[in-house]
Amino acid sequence: MEIGRQHFPEVGSPDGPTGLFVHEFDAGYLVHASWPTPEDPTAPPSSPGGSNVAISKENGDVTFLPNFPPAEAVELYHRFYRPSDS
């Protein structure tokens, strides 16, 4: 959680997430955020995008993944992650 926390705004801060969650999977940990419901759900987001953070159990590599649901993000991680040389 500490590694993942470094890559998100502080929980509860202005424009920050309402919480951070860790999803453990075979090769690592997926850290993802929950965000407050916008006041106007029809308005475009104030800051588009967002990402999940995957942390390798093997070497601590940090990989940024699209803000997909955990199962889809983990599948993408398995398809594209390549360990660093360090």
Rank of each mutant, 00 (worst) to 15 (best):
I3M: 08
I3E: 03
G4S: 08
R5I: 10
Q6F: 12
Q6W: 11
F8H: 02
F8P: 02
E10Q: 08
V11K: 00
G12L: 14
G12Q: 06
S13G: 07
S13I: 07
S13Y: 09
P14T: 13
P14F: 00
P14Y: 00
D15Y: 02
G16M: 04
G16N: 02
G16A: 10
T18M: 13
G19L: 12
L20H: 07
L20N: 07
L20V: 08
F21S: 11
F21M: 14
V22W: 15
E24C: 05
E24H: 11
D26E: 15
G28W: 00
Y29Q: 15
Y29A: 12
L30R: 01
H32W: 02
A33G: 07
S34L: 05
S34G: 02
S34Y: 09
S34Q: 14
W35D: 13
P36D: 09
T37G: 04
P38K: 12
P38G: 09
E39R: 15
E39D: 09
P41S: 10
P41L: 06
T42E: 15
A43M: 12
A43G: 04
P44L: 05
P44M: 13
P44W: 09
P44T: 13
P45I: 11
P45Y: 03
P48R: 11
P48L: 14
P48D: 09
G49N: 05
G50Q: 09
S51Y: 15
S51P: 11
S51W: 07
A54R: 08
A54G: 12
S56F: 01
E58C: 14
E58R: 09
E58D: 15
N59I: 03
N59W: 15
G60W: 06
D61Q: 05
D61S: 05
V62E: 01
T63D: 01
L65I: 03
L65Y: 00
L65N: 01
L65C: 02
P66V: 00
P66E: 00
N67D: 06
F68R: 01
P69R: 06
A71T: 13
E72V: 14
A73Y: 00
V74H: 01
V74Q: 02
E75F: 04
E75H: 02
E75L: 14
E75P: 08
E75D: 14
E75T: 03
L76R: 00
Y77W: 03
R79D: 13
R79I: 06
R79T: 11
F80H: 02
F80Y: 00
Y81I: 08
Y81V: 12
R82P: 06
R82Y: 01
P83K: 00
S84Y: 11
S84M: 06
D85N: 05
D85W: 15
S86T: 07
